[in-house]
């Protein structure tokens, strides 16, 4: 018994020592980032590994903000080579990156992703405007020229043409890039149509942002976590509920879901690509240019990610719901990223 104890303690110690020497080199690419970009980046990773025979990249789904935090920690094999983002890198994140020596970053527009407001096939769909969405979902809304706590209980309270059913919308939490995009594209656009709120724009900027951005917290808007499949399942079991999630989840579940059209437009490949569907945003992959020479296969990965076979029309990413960027934008981003040009967003 003693010997066994001693032997295993020694083994444990040896293990701990050996581990210190590891982690100096890396054979495979490492990526982090948005859960929206995750299906696409992993698909590229798999195709890249199959085509080139390189070790398969390791990609983690951390959320856009979490990904930026990890990506911007520094340069070197201990830090990831790329991060996916469902919104552009923020100024503060860019400064964090530069502060940590990550000062040469390429930005690829991978394509577009729409955000759908959907319900089960048994539910009711209607055509809603951005202003009406703000009325239904914001914590504070403008009623008769006054800014008040959101009094709307049912969709019919917002617009008499809508169903007389309780407002119940499930959506992503604030850590999600989808939530950021929803707030920016729907809530902020919607609130600007009310004079009472617009008046704040001049007088009290902080208050203006609060009224425009804050989602209601009285149980009508339910933060359902990062797991979009969970929202899809809950919609199927409750036809009166609506859900906010990436277009790709609607695309996969068209047999059980239907979408609400916003400003008269339904999300579809065509309407997202030409921008007529108002709630669509570009999605990005950011690359560390300092890693290109060091990490084997990084150039080949970038080649794959920017290829027409991946992100072009009919590419394999469109099979899982990505909407390709317009041709000139694809060409521009391809050239910039392949040549390792530094992003110009905050120059």
């Amino acid at each position: 018994m003693k010997k066994v104890l001693l032997a295993s303690t020694l083994a444990a110690a040896a293990l701990a020592v050996a581990s210190g020497a590891q982690a100096q080199s890396r054979e495979q690419l490492r990526g982090v980032g948005s859960s929206t970009v995750f299906p696409y980046s992993t698909m590229i990773a798999e195709e890249f590994a199959n085509m080139t025979g390189n070790a398969a990249p390791v990609i983690e789904s951390t959320g856009t903000g979490g990904g930026m935090q990890i990506f911007c920690q520094g340069v070197g094999v201990d830090h990831p080579d790329l991060t996916g983002a469902s919104r552009a890198m923020k100024q503060s994140e860019y400064e964090l990156c530069v502060g940590n020596g990550v000062d040469d970053i390429s930005e690829q527009v991978l394509g577009f992703d729409g955000i759908a407001l959907a319900t089960s096939r048994d539910g009711k769909v209607f055509d809603i405007s951005l202003a009406e969405l703000h009325q239904a979902l914001a914590a504070e809304v403008a009623v008769d020229g006054e800014i008040v706590e959101n009094p709307h209980e049912t969709w019919a309270d917002v617009n008499p043409d809508f169903p007389d059913a309780e407002i119940q919308v499930m959506g992503p939490p604030p850590t999600s890039g989808t939530r950021d995009a929803w707030v920016e594209l729907v809530m902020e656009e919607g609130c600007s149509e009310f004079e009472a709120i617009e008046a704040l724009h001049e007088s009290d900027e902080v208050r203006y942002e609060e009224v425009c951005q804050r989602m209601r917290e009285d149980g009508k808007f339910i933060e359902a976590g990062e797991n979009d499949n969970l929202i899809v399942q809950r919609l199927n079991s409750d036809p009166t509920a609506y859900g906010i999630f990436g277009y790709s989840f609607f695309y996969e579940n068209q047999d059980s879901l239907q979408v609400v059209s916003i400003e008269g437009v339904e999300p579809a490949e065509a309407t997202i690509a030409d921008g007529s569907y108002p709630v669509s945003r570009p999605i990005f992959i950011y690359y560390k240019n300092a890693h290109r020479e060091v990490i084997p296969g990084m150039e080949a990965f970038i080649e794959e990610a920017t290829s027409e076979a991946a992100s072009g029309p009919g590419g394999y990413l469109t099979d899982i719901g990505l909407v390709p960027a317009p041709e000139d934008q694809r060409a521009k981003t391809r050239e910039a990223v392949r040549n390792g040009e530094h992003m110009s967003r905050y120059e």
Binding site: P39, E226, N227, N229, G246, Y251, E252, N253, G321
Partner: peptide, 8 residues
């Protein structure tokens, strides 16, 4: 990871 994937 699988529970979070969109593919049916």
């Amino acid at each position: 990871i699988w529970a979070d994937s969109s593919e049916r």
